[in-house]
């Protein structure tokens, strides 16, 4: 408005613009930082190494594109991967489930085909094309949460397929919920976040990151503490116990009766 004498102006004409820009950058950056750490990390991870994305693109074209399409659009042989995020790629490739050895009811776990760098490259590439859940950071995975809360959440949300002790269980048509014993915390977290195979998605609104950490804490607690009362027979419940008593209990007792009634020589 008042732009009369240029000398009287102590500020540069663009100072206001710069100030607004700085203010916006602070609020926006802060907002981004505080609200969605995950998305922010995707951005930094993908932006930090363009070479990783390029490497991932090559690997994807050579190993995944036959089924999932050159631009993640999917085909009759495999689903589209747009929006699955780095977490999904890291879970599927990192546990060896992808690439598939063969079509079947469900992708089977096997020794991973790719190195960690290659898996990361594939994840970076898929994440670079469309947004999706990122690979969890180490502080989300520390097993120092509340085991009680984790146990309750596990029994309510997970045990009907994975069994109360995480020993796994059957689903329909040959599909199954795998055993969770010895599974890396990262993969447990990613599975909850992305819902691989037949598993439902437990997003952060459904089970918060703290709750997810609690569940991991509970699983690690029951796995790291020796099973109370002796060998757990695979944590399979009464079926394993029944088989045991019929084979070893009755077996031992019958052997002893035979010994007791044997004619002395």
């Amino acid at each position: 408005m008042a732009r009369k004498p240029a000398k009287a102006n102590r500020r540069h004409p663009l100072a206001t613009v710069v100030l607004i820009a700085i203010g916006l950058a602070f609020t926006g950056g802060g907002y981004a930082l505080f609200t969605s750490t995950a998305t922010a990390q995707t951005d930094t991870a993908s932006s930090t190494s363009q070479s990783s994305v390029d490497e991932g693109k090559k690997l994807f074209a050579a190993n995944c594109a036959t089924c999932h399409g050159m631009s993640l659009e999917g085909s009759t042989a495999g689903p589209a991967l747009l929006g699955v995020g780095a977490a999904s790629v890291d879970f599927q490739v990192g546990t060896g489930r992808m690439p598939l050895a063969m079509q079947g009811p469900q992708a089977m776990e096997k020794p991973p085909q790719f190195t960690e760098e290659q898996t990361q490259a594939l994840a970076d590439y898929v994440a670079s094309l469309s947004p999706g859940p990122a690979i969890p950071t180490d502080d989300q995975l520390t097993a120092n949460g509340n085991a009680t809360n984790g146990g309750e959440l596990f029994r309510i949300n997970c045990a009907m397929c994975h069994n109360v002790a995480g020993a796994g269980g059957a689903l329909t048509e040959g599909k199954f919920a795998p055993s969770l014993t010895g599974v890396d915390s990262k993969y447990i977290y990613e599975a909850m976040l992305t819902g691989p195979q037949n598993m439902p998605v437990f997003n952060d609104h459904n089970i918060t990151p703290e709750d997810k950490r609690d569940i991991i804490t509970y699983l690690k607690y029951i796995q790291n503490n020796d099973s109370t009362g002796g060998y757990d027979l695979g944590n399979l419940g009464p079926v394993a116990e029944g088989l045991f008593i019929w084979i070893f209990g009755i077996g031992a007792v019958v052997a002893l009766t035979v010994w007791l009634t044997a004619k002395s020589n």
Partner: peptide, 14 residues
């Protein structure tokens, strides 16, 4: 509400 996978009775009620 929860029912665990592998919920079975003891063998004799099987």
């Amino acid at each position: 509400s929860p029912v665990s996978a592998g919920t079975q009775p003891d063998w004799y009620i099987g």
